[in-house]
């Protein structure tokens, strides 16, 4: 056989395989995504949107539905009739209102969505910017039983990684009072309660700043064009549009304030310091392992040894030597001991 022709055929086959099987952009995964665009998905997405409106006390219209689900007005009105048929909504004076049944259904989808986000955050290495999109797909796939099993496995969590409450099996969801970061007055401390994960581009921008629910922030400066605040010893500027997607709860006086603490990664070999807190970004297994090793607030910790390539570093904790990677020690806040 002519080797040149064989070579070209070989390269051709390789290219075709890559086109089909490439993750996310390949034909296979596109086809898989297409497959999920069915009526059930539309029904469930519409219910979620309606619930969102209800939660925020806004009126939902046909337009907002067609916009939110990116479908035509015609399709939207068909969808609404369908929902009405199913007894999930009623129409009153031109308003679309969820029935009890519809609300429960919506809450179940939201529960699935948030549990799946929690699962991705705690038990996988999926990037935080992908959590929401993956959960958008998964929420239509899991059965009620699977969802309950998932919840049990995760220890029945209360909040998703963005800080949103996860509805219980019976659809209970508590209301928490929070403000936009832009409403926090200058000089006040607040704890990030929740970061809105939609729209995705805005979330990605906030995320790129390294903000997490549970983080403590203090507003330094406020104007119409920017809000300057500090968190964990770093300064950050956000446009008001972005800041309004960050929701905070004002800190009560008795909560410990972790603003100017350094990271464990900043200490040099031989130095001994006190742990003050573990960052909320240390999640799931990672966090539990740290706690198991006895790295809790108040623990004395001493940098003992650097690996020959500089990372990880071995620390002495409660008589044992434990190696931590820099991306772990970055998330442990410490206080230097006062010289006696």
């Amino acid at each position: 056989m002519e080797p040149l022709i064989t070579l070209i055929v070989g390269i051709g086959v390789l290219v075709v395989i890559i086109l089909i099987a490439a993750p996310e952009k390949g034909l296979w995964s596109r086809w898989a995504k297409q497959k999920t665009q069915r009526e059930k998905v539309l029904v469930e997405d519409a219910l979620k949107h309606l619930y969102d409106c209800e939660y925020n006390n806004i009126d939902c219209t046909l337009n907002s539905i067609s916009g939110n689900l990116s479908i035509s007005g015609d399709q939207a009105s068909k969808l609404i009739s369908k929902l009405e048929e199913l007894g999930l909504i009623v129409r009153k004076n031109g308003k679309i209102i969820l029935t009890n049944e519809g609300r429960l259904y919506a809450l179940r989808i939201i529960r699935t969505h948030r549990l799946w986000e929690k699962y991705l955050a705690d038990n996988t290495s999926v990037n935080e910017t992908d959590w929401h999109n993956l959960a958008e797909l998964k929420e239509h796939e899991l059965s009620n039983d699977e969802v309950n099993k998932l919840a049990a496995r995760l220890g029945n969590p209360l909040q998703d990684p963005h800080g949103d409450p996860i509805p219980s099996e019976s659809g209970e969801i508590p209301k928490v009072k929070y403000f936009d970061l832009s409403q926090l007055s200058v000089g006040k401390f607040g704890r990030i309660y929740h970061i809105e994960d939609e729209p995705g581009e805005v979330f990605a921008q906030i995320n790129a700043q390294g903000l997490y629910p549970g983080m403590q922030v203090r507003v330094l400066e406020k104007s119409n064009t920017r809000i300057k605040f500090e968190y964990e010893g770093e300064e950050c500027v956000l446009a008001p549009v972005l800041a309004s997607n960050v929701h905070v709860i004002p800190l009560e006086d008795n909560e410990e304030i972790t603003k100017d603490f350094e990271n464990l990664s900043s200490i040099s070999v031989g130095e001994e310091v006190v742990v003050v807190a573990l960052s909320k970004a240390l999640r799931g297994q990672q966090r539990r392992r740290m706690l198991d090793f006895g790295i809790v607030p108040g623990t004395l910790i001493k940098a003992q040894l650097k690996s020959l390539s500089g990372d990880p570093t071995a620390y002495e904790v409660r008589g044992t030597t434990i190696a931590l990677r820099k991306n772990q020690s970055d998330k442990i806040y410490i206080k230097r001991k006062e010289k006696v």
Binding site: L120, T124, S125, V126, G284, Q285, R289, P312, T321, I322
Partner: peptide, 19 residues
């Protein structure tokens, strides 16, 4: 593997240096 099929698996680093 870590970028594709195994993205969905849990990951937690721990390494103890015994005496």
């Amino acid at each position: 593997l870590s970028k594709t099929v195994l993205k969905g698996e849990a990951s937690a680093f721990s390494l103890e240096l015994p005496p």
